[in-house]
Deep mutational scan, measured.
Amino acid sequence: SSQSQGISSSSTSTMPNSSQSSHSSSGTLSSLETVSTQELYSIPEDQEPEDQEPEEPTPAPWARLWALQDGFANLECVNDNYWFGRDKSCEYCFDEPLLKRTDKYRTYSKKHFRIFREVGPKNSYIAYIEDHSGNGTFVNTELVGKGKRRPLNNNSEIALSLSRNKVFVFFDLTVDDQSVYPKALRDEYIMSKTLGSGACGEVKLAFERKTCKKVAIKIISKRKFAIGSAREADPALNVETEIEILKKLNHPCIIKIKNFFDAEDYYIVLELMEGGELFDKVVGNKRLKEATCKLYFYQMLLAVQYLHENGIIHRDLKPENVLLSSQEEDCLIKITDFGHSKILGETSLMRTLCGTPTYLAPEVLVSVGTAGYNRAVDCWSLGVILFICLSGYPPFSEHRTQVSLKDQITSGKYNFIPEVWAEVSEKALDLVKKLLVVDPKARFTTEEALRHPWLQDEDMKRKFQDLLSEENESTALPQVLAQPSTSRKRPREGEAEGAETTKRPAVCAAVL
């Protein structure tokens, strides 16, 4: 046999249950609850290399294929790409003598399909299967379609040439079993990697079954959420508030809700932002270029202005709740996480202390139980975000031990490091100062900020419009641009040419 590394010779191994799959997660993409704000000051410096380099560890398999027929071997997927077919160049070659004697062998292509993985959001991997055969590759009886790919989820059954000719079961060793999710959700989405997690739940990458488009699904544990919100009269209202707010909003710089499922837990389906959180971008770069800050901040102002015009105060604006559309420097941003939002009543007064301390406005800290506050709290938070983006460190921090965090904020005395700000323009610093004003009545509004000289930049605004146009074009394009080929190089076993392929839609398939 010419099988590559990772293939075992026996096809009769006992199949494990899916609970053996491991679970991976990374930083929070968007969480309903406010958790302790991640610290920006503690960015690790590059460490000196050791005298002796450690040995390379043996790579762990990321997936496993269990053979369902004699003549096929099990495969431990270690590499990122595997070709399957009769050709000797394939990493998994159909060359077992037992297999060659079967009637089905002649229906398999020289290069029938490939399984591979690509880097997705949060640097996690996504597994795909890609059909290159004349007679078809099927996943859970659905045709992939020649020249098309679809994501592979845990426990997928792979069939060759005929939908009933099941050859492998695919085990993704990095994700959960699909069966743990409600059927209504599974009918519409293929669940994938964990993108982030918080005290009350997690955010998962998923794929729409009909279109193969990526989405983010925010899962909120009702049990954990009820415990964490025990002081509230009705904890469920917080989730329902977020859903109702998101459904009503329609702005290019605000995250869109696509679906909602109320089962044992809450499942909020949101558009996916491939670039992750602004927080991670700031930490990764230490600070952002001023031109990049301007492009992002302009969009934040437009989003918050839209919220305020619609009578909504976000109340928890922070870099973790600003998501980026891509890994590119120039990209769209979207505001997310409306769990603490407040729809303005007639009095415009709110007395609930919520939000993240580092970003809270002075009037929030001094008015607990005594007075109210209004939309100006969001403008203060925007000032803190702009400060961080321009400088790479927070204006107020618990680690300045000589003054408490509350006193720093209520006095408006931010930590100004001259040598850092020497590289920032006077106009940018002036806008920061106009937003970090203790008196909410004297603080800049979103309208005033948008009129500030720093943002009178036609090149930046043109760039934003171009990015918007690109997004609109990409969302308007159909996901499947061509029909699967019906040509046949070899006959199917026991049926006429093209008899099955043309009847089945290529579900969740995307043209390369």
Rank of each mutant, 00 (worst) to 15 (best):
Q299E: 13
N285F: 10
S325W: 12
Q479H: 08
K281N: 12
L324D: 00
T446K: 02
D262S: 11
T475G: 13
M350H: 00
Q456K: 09
V364T: 00
E497R: 15
K248A: 08
E497G: 11
E320G: 01
L307R: 02
K503G: 09
S325T: 08
L270W: 01
A449P: 01
C293H: 06
V283K: 13
L332S: 15
F444L: 11
H340P: 04
T486V: 13
V283S: 10
L344V: 09
L468V: 11
V269P: 01
I313S: 04
E274P: 10
L512K: 04
D466L: 00
Q465S: 03
V283Y: 03
L349R: 08
L332D: 02
E244L: 10
F338G: 03
G284E: 14
V432F: 06
K413I: 13
V364W: 02
V364Q: 09
R492G: 10
D378T: 00
V507E: 15
C508Q: 12
K247T: 08
V282G: 03
V304A: 13
V366Y: 13
D337C: 04
L431R: 03
A361I: 01
P362L: 01
C293M: 07
G383E: 01
C354V: 10
V437T: 15
A371N: 05
A263R: 05
P440L: 03
K289W: 09
S485T: 11
V322I: 08
Y359H: 02
T370E: 11
Y267C: 07
M300E: 01
L431Q: 01
F338R: 00
I268F: 12
A376P: 12
K281E: 11
G276S: 13
G345S: 07
L288R: 05
D378N: 01
A499E: 13
A361D: 01
T358K: 15
K294T: 10
A263Y: 04
A291E: 06
Q479K: 10
Y414H: 09
E398A: 02
S487R: 14
E426P: 07
V403G: 07
I333G: 00
R287H: 14
V480N: 13
Q479E: 09
K433E: 12
I417T: 06
V282K: 04
V304Q: 02
A506T: 06
Y359D: 01
L429C: 15
Y373T: 00
G383V: 00
G369F: 15
N250K: 06
F261M: 10
L455P: 11
D457R: 04
G275A: 12
S485A: 15
Q408P: 08
R451M: 15
L344P: 14
K441T: 14
C293P: 04
R488H: 11
P362V: 02
Y298E: 06
I333M: 13
R351L: 07
L288F: 08
